[in-house]
């Protein structure tokens, strides 16, 4: 209430102060400048301005400003959502790129590991094959050697048997007659040639 009184008091003061200070009277001395605000035209202009402004305000509020405000707000919302979705899309794309790069790096590591593994496997297989071949070759060589040795032994055994038989036959012939030095020499020579022929035949 006190505040209301203060405001009312100040309004009264506003009327008094300019009067007390001697506010100049209204109206100029210029006859033509007076035309700028003659009541005959100023009052109608004032009323017309107020009426037209108010009418414009209400009509435009209905016909224009509502649509413009809605349009601006819609655009603002659209732009905001578009920016947000673009930012989301960008974040997703960045994430996808990161994932892709990680996958790529992993794939690279894996592929090089696989290549290494394959190379190692191939080497191992080759080594195994080589060693197996070498072992087989060695065993075949040994077998051949053994076979040669066996054949040699068999041949010698047969040679000895033949030699013994010939010696026996020669000894039998010798027992049937007296052996003279000339006969002896002849017998040995015959035996030797027989053995030699046997050896050639045995080959």
């Amino acid at each position: 209430m006190t505040k209301l009184m203060s405001v009312l008091g100040s309004v009264v003061l506003m009327g008094i102060v300019p009067t007390a200070l001697g506010a100049p009277e209204e109206g100029g001395t210029e006859a033509h400048a007076e035309l700028l605000a003659r009541p005959e035209t100023a009052v109608p202009a004032m009323i017309a301005a107020i009426v037209m402004f108010c009418l414009l305000f209400f009509l435009l509020k209905k016909l224009a400003w509502g649509a413009i405000l809605k349009g601006l707000n819609d655009r603002e919302t659209k732009i905001r959502t578009e920016i947000e979705s673009a930012e989301n899309a960008r974040a997703q794309a960045t994430r996808a790129l990161d994932d892709y790069q990680k996958e790529l790096a992993k794939a690279r590591t894996e592929s090089s590991a696989m290549i290494q593994q394959a190379r190692a496997d191939a080497q191992r297989v080759a080594d195994e094959l080589r060693s197996k071949n070498e072992a087989e070759l060695a065993s075949m060589k040994n077998k051949a050697k053994e076979e040669i040795e066996a054949a040699k032994r068999a041949a010698l055994t047969e040679l000895y048997a033949q030699t013994a038989m010939l010696a026996t036959q020669v000894a039998g012939r010798i027992l049937h007659r007296e052996i003279k030095p000339a006969d002896h020499a002849r017998l040995v020579e015959e035996s030797l040639s027989q053995i030699g022929s046997l050896g050639r035949n045995g080959d």
Binding site: A45, A48, M52, L56, L60, G71
Partner: peptide, 29 residues
């Protein structure tokens, strides 16, 4: 009851009521 300035305001009144709703239709989504 009718002065030059009232005629000008009436012209503005008509212009605004003609032009601004047209613009509003173009601006609205």
């Amino acid at each position: 009851i009718l002065t030059n300035h009232i005629v000008m305001m009436l012209t503005v009144f008509v212009l605004m009521l003609w032009l601004l709703p047209r613009a509003a239709r173009a601006i609205s989504t």
